[in-house]
Design a protein around this nucleic acid. Sequence first.
RNA 1: GGCGAGGUAGCUCAGUCGGUUAGAGCACUGGCUUCAUAAGCCAGGGGUCGCGGGUUCAAGUCCCGCCCUCGCUACCA
Length: 558
Amino acid sequence: MARTIVTSALLYANGPLHFGHIAGAYLPADVYVRTLRMCGDEVLAVSGSDDHGVAITISAEKAGEDYPSYVARWNGNMRATFDALDIRYDIVSGTSTCPEHPELSREFFSKLMANGYLVERQTKQLFCVHDDMFLADRYVEGTCYKCGSEGARGDECPSCGTWIDPLQFEDPRCKICGSTPEERTTTHWYLDLPKLRDDKIGGWIRDHEWKTNVEKFIENLLDDVPERAITRDMSWGVSLPPEVGDAGEGKVLYVWFDAPIGYISFTKELMRERGTPDAWKDWWQGEDTQLVHFIGKDNIPFHCLVFPSMLHGVQDGYVLPSAVPANEFYNLKGGKFSTSGGNAFDVVKFVEEWGVDATRFYLCSTMPETADSEFSLEQLIQTTNTALAGTIGNLATRVLKFIAKNFDAVVPELQESHREEMDRLILEECGPIEDPAAHVREFRFRRAAEAVVANATVANVFVDRMAPWALRKEDPAKAASALNTLCEWLNWQARWMAPLMPTKAQQLWEMLGHSGQVSDEPWPGTPDAGSWRSLTAGAALGNPEALFPRLTDPASQT
RNA sequence: GGCGAGGUAGCUCAGUCGGUUAGAGCACUGGCUUCAUAAGCCAGGGGUCGCGGGUUCAAGUCCCGCCCUCGCUACCA
């Protein structure tokens, strides 16, 4: 049986989730997981928050909160957003709360060191006595020694574009408190990426089949891969293992080093809770495991180069990613979603107002799969009204209400003599039928969304060809056969919809008279003339009602 | 400045290895239908594929230059 670990980018616990994140990494993962599960694959879905790093400590202090509660707040926001959007994981944890995380992160560090993939170096860095911390380049400002403009940041001068070495500032200031920092020597450990690349992993990365947009990114990256510091001078994070000695005092692992390890430590946490503490190995070190990382394009270097290098470097038999379906960026009004810049809105409230499934569907059908793409409320409303209310929802009501009125609200009978004609008409002559799951497996979510609608159009064409309202008077038995065929089709439609629109799929499923969960049904694929029917004539149908209410654009009202 | 992505119909986007008249959805126009959520079906109009060169029998697709938009620029993630 196919076994797949699906991860969604660990969210940096320093702000709310917005549609950019959701369309980029979380919703596609959820649709993928739901699809695979209905297909009978064994799937583990993991996500959580990335809780460490300087940015968080500074923001927390500004907000007057202690780090754990600050991080917990954003972790909670993430969970609430997932709930609102029906995005489900087996575990949503956090790097600062997962009990297994520190130890496993240190184990990675130790093994990489033992295997010769870490380099120890001493560097000079600015230290702020007032704030009692080494300052990241970004937190130093001063007068640019090239163009003389004030307010140059420690990494780059905004006026002349020069790359700044903050140690060369004549008047360095701490950006946090404004005092003058002093120069101090500090020791750090670097991940020897060039060596890791040359010891096999480079070849693996080069030969691996990546998504097109990922491929382009990686090629350049590989040629010029630097050593990367994986430790920091601060207290909020995972402390270093004892074997580094005194030099490790007051230092923690760099967030980017420990964050992806979270995927594994969260799995350990989950398996311990389930009472099978060793089961995580079957996943992460199992030969047949497929590892799929859903991320945004900004995460490509880490998931395609750094983390695989780490997994390889510890030499513990970890699986390497089989696919990294990175999405591009999702934009709002031409710019990126940004909560600090005000270019965003409250996701939970948005979903309450416009509906979970309509939102999920629209995000999927405009997902930035191949290039950056654009979100707009007007289009969401448009799409909901035409594709969901008009094509899919109206198909259900026009069929089921007609049956309720004229055929006693039960599945009408199919005359054996009509079977061949009905099957030929709907399966061959009313338009192409596609399997949404086939697109999902290729990470083509936009096409999958289109396919669900296109399949409903096939049935709408069938209704028009049969014209049951007229046929009922001329040949009632044949009208019954046609409606029986349409009931069968709606049963497929509900299952096709399930991964994308779980709530509405379930509602349709119940309208068809079923009591169980549609998501527990096996994936239907595409109908086959000989075997696609499964209904019993006379079975009671549920109450037909509008699946997707039409939405009104507040901007278009006068 | 450097790096990355993009500029294709009114809008949002597809276009695999360069190969017939450049596609889809929405919007728009016309016709059919009346079962249904003023829904459905059919047909149609609409593009010098950012600009200028080049390679080729053939370029939206490859090469060079330019213009514009967006993102990143590493010890922030």
